[in-house]
């Protein structure tokens, strides 16, 4: 039965890429290369090192931005989750940020911080941080009441309750929030490269579009989506291994 799932996954990949190939051969549009052409361009760019340089450039704001968002986001989230004053003060901001199209802030960030790394890092941060803060705060607030009571009944200090009960209980949801934050961070990093200045993968996309080298453009897009999906799947696998026994039941987006 495990084989059936594997075969079907393979079949579904063949179907989708096959449809891409056929549509490219008809062709549906002058700007729609075939699957094989695009893969050819992908391997050519991997081979001549174009991809490696591009990703070194693209991943820098992503990594810096995600690191800042994770650190600040979890700290603020813990604070908001533990204190009703900070919840009152901060949570409206992050709730609005979560619902709002923050991408609209980009032109303003460019005006204020120029077109360099700072702006791009900030774009990643505003995309990634709200979900990290809200997940952390929600998880901390939702620590099962009976577990906290248990801590009190067995004479745990307030600090011990936070360190030994609240944070471990919240960590699966905090981790899930990090994963969602990184997913949003990818969106931000690419948006920054397409909107602010074309660098890295964004540069390959923009440049090859301008010279109508569509296979390279599709290859670059394919590679970044593949990278993001593989990385997020890896995180999800780590999550299941790490928090195997913990109760789940919190979902947030």
């Amino acid at each position: 039965m495990a084989n059936r799932a594997l075969y079907l996954k393979f079949l579904s990949a063949v179907l989708l890429f096959g449809a891409w190939e056929v549509a490219g051969r008809i062709p549906v549009s002058f700007a729609f290369p075939t699957f094989l052409e695009s893969m050819g361009a992908l391997f050519r760019m991997i081979g001549d090192g174009t991809m490696a340089t591009a990703y070194a450039e693209t991943l820098r704001p992503l990594v810096v931005g995600v690191a800042i968002s994770a650190f600040l986001g979890i700290a603020i989230g813990l604070w908001v989750g533990l204190s009703s004053f900070f919840e009152w003060l901060f949570s409206p901001i992050f709730i609005v940020m979560q619902a709002a199209p923050l991408a609209a802030l980009i032109p303003l960030l460019v005006l204020a911080y120029g077109i360099g790394l700072t702006s791009k890092v900030l774009v990643v941060c505003i995309m990634a941080m709200p979900v990290i803060v809200l997940n952390t705060a929600g998880a901390v607030r939702n620590t099962p009441e009976s577990m906290k009571e248990m801590g009190k009944a067995f004479l745990a200090t307030d600090l011990a309750i936070i360190l030994k009960i609240v944070i471990p209980a919240a960590s699966p949801v905090i981790f899930a929030g990090l994963r969602l934050g990184i997913s949003a961070g990818f969106i931000g990093a690419i948006l920054a490269e397409l909107k602010i200045t074309p660098t890295g993968v964004g540069d390959i996309i923009t440049y090859s579009r301008s010279i109508a080298d569509y296979p390279s453009m599709y290859a670059a897009i394919f590679s970044i989506i593949l990278l993001a999906v593989l990385f997020l799947n890896l995180l999800e696998k780590i999550e299941t291994v790490l928090f195997k026994g913990n109760q789940r039941g919190y979902v947030s987006d």
């Binding site: 009976s146 577990m147 009571e149 067995f154 004479l155 030994k164 471990p168 209980a169 960590s171």
Partner: peptide, 29 residues
């Protein structure tokens, strides 16, 4: 206080801790 110990209806075990760490929790505190 140390003169009373509580057994919970929903067990209130720490899901990330092994049995022995759960049992030792009160002594750890």
């Amino acid at each position: 206080g140390p003169d009373r110990a509580f057994v919970f209806q929903d067990f209130a075990l720490l899901p990330w801790a092994s049995v022995i760490r759960n049992v030792a929790f009160g002594l750890e505190m």
